[in-house]
Design a protein around this nucleic acid. Structure first.
Lengths: 236, 236
DNA sequence: CGAATAGTGTCTATAAGACATTATACT
DNA sequence: AGTATAATGTCTTATAGACACTATTCG
């Protein structure tokens, strides 16, 4: 009688953050075969048969990046299961997308000989190669983040608990890779009900007028959305 | 030494179609335990260790609904892996979303004692109970479809190869659950470059002026998007 | 003709983008 | 004062939505 094949399940994390004006992703250097020495997304196998998938994602987030999943935006990105994607056999990977505010250099984790942030552009351009199908996963993760900035309050997840509107604008500019008008952005972002609310303080800059501080509001879905400007010289 | 746990993988399908003005989903009546006799999404285990996940989705689509995956819109919806979601043990399910034009009554498949279309509202309202966590999967699928109508040409996947603009409007109205102004819709949908293009013919109705026929254009992403009207009496 | 559906035109409130102007800090 | 950044205001153009109107079929 036929029985269904058993497979191994890994959880991989696309952890995005903003460092000095560009979008970066956390990578580890693999300490074990296969792809030993290559750069890869942090992640690992399900711990045991009783562990949920999202649960495993939170655990890996803590083990490999020392981040607290409860504090962060964490969502399922997709599942990658082409036969042959992993030389160890039939392994499918459930990828999660995590967004973090700017952080210091990460800690080397259990499976990782080394870990560090790398600019998205290094990976998408092909200058930096990744193990397995992790290039595809990173590509999907960045595209997901770009889209979600328009319709959700995801951008605040890149910021600290309080932030200036200019800082929020930098998030949009870095993730989208465009320049925005500060004055129109200021008005627009304040008009969306529940997106951001005043935190009361001010931030002293090196020079110039101090900026008011804001915090994330209660709204997760933006009405109206913040539309990404057309890069595709359409119409003509 | 620790070894990763092996799990079973199923593929489940949320197949949506439009039947007499409302959105319906394909369900099967389970012929085997667990949940024997209950209604569930069509789907099944991976065939063998060499079968890809998307490949399995196409196969199930053919086996259980007699639909050709190459002709249809088919995309990954998400992966559901809570421990305990399946009494048989550790089973995770990769769900796919499929969109089909109106079809005749479906054929009963291998695992299915019976199969048929059910209105989404019957399920979302709780009047019709589903096996496993399939209510959650259907909910996510419908929400995905609703959102994608705004930014993608998904709506044309509900229609036949050629369709009138009024028919396309019915798709939007049924999926979103709103009423739209035919005249504004007509203009708006024609303004999006590459969304629909003339197919040359006309469709004779019982009475009234015949409608011009259109077909899906080359564009998958809508610029500008067709925004869903606010149901949430916002502002005040 | 009248009824019904398809397709076009027009008006108005609102929003988006360009850009001037004022406000408040530091050196 | 001079410079740098924050915050507000104004103008123009594009767009969304409401709705009047014309076109083409059938009975």
């Amino acid at each position: 009688m036929w029985v269904p094949p058993e497979v191994l399940v890994t959880v991989d994390l696309v952890i995005l953050t903003l460092r000095k004006t560009d979008l970066q992703v956390l990578l580890v250097e693999r300490g074990v075969e296969p792809y030993r020495g290559a750069r890869a997304l942090p992640g690992g196998f399900l711990n045991n048969a009783g562990e949920g998938i999202a649960e495993a994602a939170v655990r890996e987030l803590r083990e490999e990046a020392d981040l607290d999943g409860a504090q962060l935006h964490l969502e399922q990105l997709g599942t990658y299961g082409d036969p042959g994607r992993d030389p160890r056999g039939r392994v499918i990977s459930v990828a999660y997308l995590a967004i973090a505010p700017e952080l210091p250099e990460p800690v080397a984790g259990t499976d990782a000989a080394g870990a560090g942030w790398e600019p998205i552009e290094e990976i998408l351009s092909g200058r930096l190669n990744l193990a397995f199908d992790h290039l595809q996963i990173v590509t999907d993760g960045v595209e997901r983040a770009r889209g979600k900035l328009e319709h959700s309050a995801l951008a605040t997840a890149f910021c600290d608990a309080t932030f200036s509107i200019a800082e929020l604008q930098h998030v949009y500019e870095a993730v989208w890779g465009v320049e925005l008008d500060p004055r129109n952005f200021y008005r627009k972002v304040q008009k969306v009900p529940g997106f951001i609310e005043s935190a009361g303080g001010e931030r002293k800059a090196t020079n110039g007028r101090p900026a008011r501080l804001f915090k994330a509001g209660p709204t997760a879905v933006l009405h109206p959305p913040l539309v990404r400007p057309d890069t595709t010289t359409e119409g003509q």
